[in-house]
Computed example of a mutant assay.
Amino acid sequence: MSRKRITILTVVSLFLIVYVCYGFWIAKDVKSILTVGMQPDSSYEKYMSDQAYNRLNPLRNHMTASSYTYKPEDHSVGPVFLFHFFFVAKSSTKQSFEFHDASPTFGGTEVVKMTTKLKHGRWYATKVYIAA
């Protein structure tokens, strides 16, 4: 192979490796955002906008009217599929949850689509759309 071809393949390979690694970082933060969004009375401001928290939180989106306790074992987040351009990302995932200590018990599985942007070294949710 020519030197030019090796250089091009090396640059493309490095770009793909960085892109995929960056994607894993975004996916980890998306899961953290979903966890914070499900917690009642959390300090969510550094993770997401008011709109995002109002859509994610069961008390704020009127899924329940009573208080509940967040337990990690009652909440699971599936694989995160995303498209990103290094400072902005669109993601889609499925989350399942069930809370027994609220009256009445509530839960379900929903598809969550989220727009995030890089803000102060962490991913910040700006918009959330939930499809049941």
Rank of each mutant, 00 (worst) to 15 (best):
D29A: 03
K113W: 11
P104T: 08
D74F: 02
V112Y: 04
A102E: 07
Y68V: 04
K28W: 03
F86K: 11
V20E: 12
F97C: 03
D74N: 08
P104H: 11
H75R: 03
T7W: 12
P79V: 09
D29W: 14
T64R: 09
T93V: 14
E73M: 06
N54H: 07
T7L: 15
F99S: 00
K46H: 01
G121M: 01
E110C: 02
R122I: 00
T10V: 10
E110N: 12
F81P: 08
I17K: 02
D101H: 01
L59V: 09
G107I: 10
P72L: 05
G37Q: 10
F15Q: 09
F85A: 09
Y70T: 00
P72K: 11
I8G: 06
P104M: 05
E73T: 06
F81E: 15
M38C: 12
V30A: 01
V20H: 13
F87E: 11
V36G: 01
F15N: 09
P58S: 12
M114V: 08
V18W: 09
T93D: 12
L14H: 08
P40W: 05
T64Q: 05
Y19M: 10
S2M: 05
P79N: 14
P40K: 01
P79C: 09
L14F: 15
Y70Q: 02
V112E: 05
L82E: 15
H120M: 13
K4H: 13
Y53N: 00
A125Q: 13
Y53D: 00
V111I: 08
A52P: 06
K119N: 03
F99V: 04
T69D: 09
V12I: 13
A125P: 12
T126N: 01
L9Q: 15
S76C: 03
R5C: 06
G78E: 10
S32W: 07
Y53G: 00
T69C: 02
L56Q: 11
V88G: 05
H84G: 11
Y70I: 01
I33L: 01
R5Y: 12
R55D: 15
V80S: 11
Y124N: 02
R60S: 00
K119R: 03
N54V: 07
L34W: 08
F15W: 15
F24P: 03
I33A: 00
L56P: 07
T109Y: 05
V80M: 14
F81A: 15
F15L: 15
V12D: 06
F86T: 13
T105R: 05
S96F: 11
M38G: 13
K113V: 07
D50K: 06
Q51G: 02
F81T: 15
Q39A: 00
F87Q: 12
A89C: 11
H100N: 11
V20F: 14
D101W: 00
